[in-house]
Design a protein around this nucleic acid. Sequence first.
DNA 1: GCGACTATGTTAGTGACTAACATTTCCCTC
DNA 2: GAGGGAAATGTTAGTCACTAACATAGTCGC
Lengths: 191, 191
Amino acid sequence: MSTTSTAPTGRRARTRQRLIDHGLELIERQGYEQTTAAQIAAAAGVTEMTFFRHFATKEQLVLEDPYDPFLASGIGEQPRELPPLRRAAAGILAVWRSLPEPEQPEIRRRVRIAARTPALRGAMWRSTGNTEAAIVAQLVDDGTDPLDARVAASAVLAALVTGLYAWADGEVETLGAAIERALAVVGADRD
Amino acid sequence: MSTTSTAPTGRRARTRQRLIDHGLELIERQGYEQTTAAQIAAAAGVTEMTFFRHFATKEQLVLEDPYDPFLASGIGEQPRELPPLRRAAAGILAVWRSLPEPEQPEIRRRVRIAARTPALRGAMWRSTGNTEAAIVAQLVDDGTDPLDARVAASAVLAALVTGLYAWADGEVETLGAAIERALAVVGADRD
DNA sequence: GCGACTATGTTAGTGACTAACATTTCCCTC
DNA sequence: GAGGGAAATGTTAGTCACTAACATAGTCGC
């Protein structure tokens, strides 16, 4: 096997990347609804069918899960006396602070498109499913009632996504600042 | 003008009601994706075109905003010392407690369908737009920073919707109990 | 170079919607 | 209780997201 496990370079990977590049550019220029899958495919030098073989839906071209179930991993280290919402928020904040800064320009481009496209704002919630499940599992593991855990997880992710939108729109300088503020509102630090 | 402002009974209203009745029944029996707009229209004795004249999208047949911007009206009466998330949660809880019990069977039917249909879970967030805006406006009016207000509003609504799902799925006995629990998790009462 | 496998192309279809125009049904007025 | 005009619905012909079945073309190990 090749050692370049992080950046595959086969034919399929190249086609996929062309679809992403041309797709995001077209969508930013013309808007999401005004850009058809066929257009993107043509721009990438490929047929519509091939587009859908790479992305099950048009949404997925934009919403390549920017979320990460890994975010939930810090929750277990938070004091159990805290109520679930604050434990979740504090745990995510701790993980975030320990992470290297991610690929911001690419993520921001995607989030900005999602923030401006009503149809995608809804889809964004679906794409957080894995992360939400991970947060719920972690909270329940630590003894939280399952319903309370689901409520807390959805609230924390809603706050996070809202913060991301603000960052993508330029209301907040850095991604880090947006996340810190969003999590503060849901009680990551004591209020 | 007629005095029956609450229950229109014209031809259009009757057609709309037939579409809702047959639509919800078909969808509950066969699933949302498996039920086409044409099927629903035929069951209601009209054409597909008429269906879309009553509901801009198939989603809207199910998601006739069960949310109410009126929920935001109690936020102004909460103490301003509270952080925004808790003010929003406490305000909504206060309004809820002051309301008469709504039409539960109909709402529950809709929420249950939405809870079981991934495509609708995303759409549900879009349909809370008005309520979210009302909460944000109320918080900002009372002096909250706009970004914090948006984060708090989205978190409160996420909690509410998650509670509603649990109620529709039968995990919580009453709608009231579901709402109280969901709002408690986001700090409606002191923790 | 040659097969096996993978990536892409072709064709034909379904279903959610939209636009433009024709037709029916209701209801209000005289 | 006709008649006219608006509201409600029907018809037709599309576009676009997405799917299925089968055909072709690159690619890679050997």
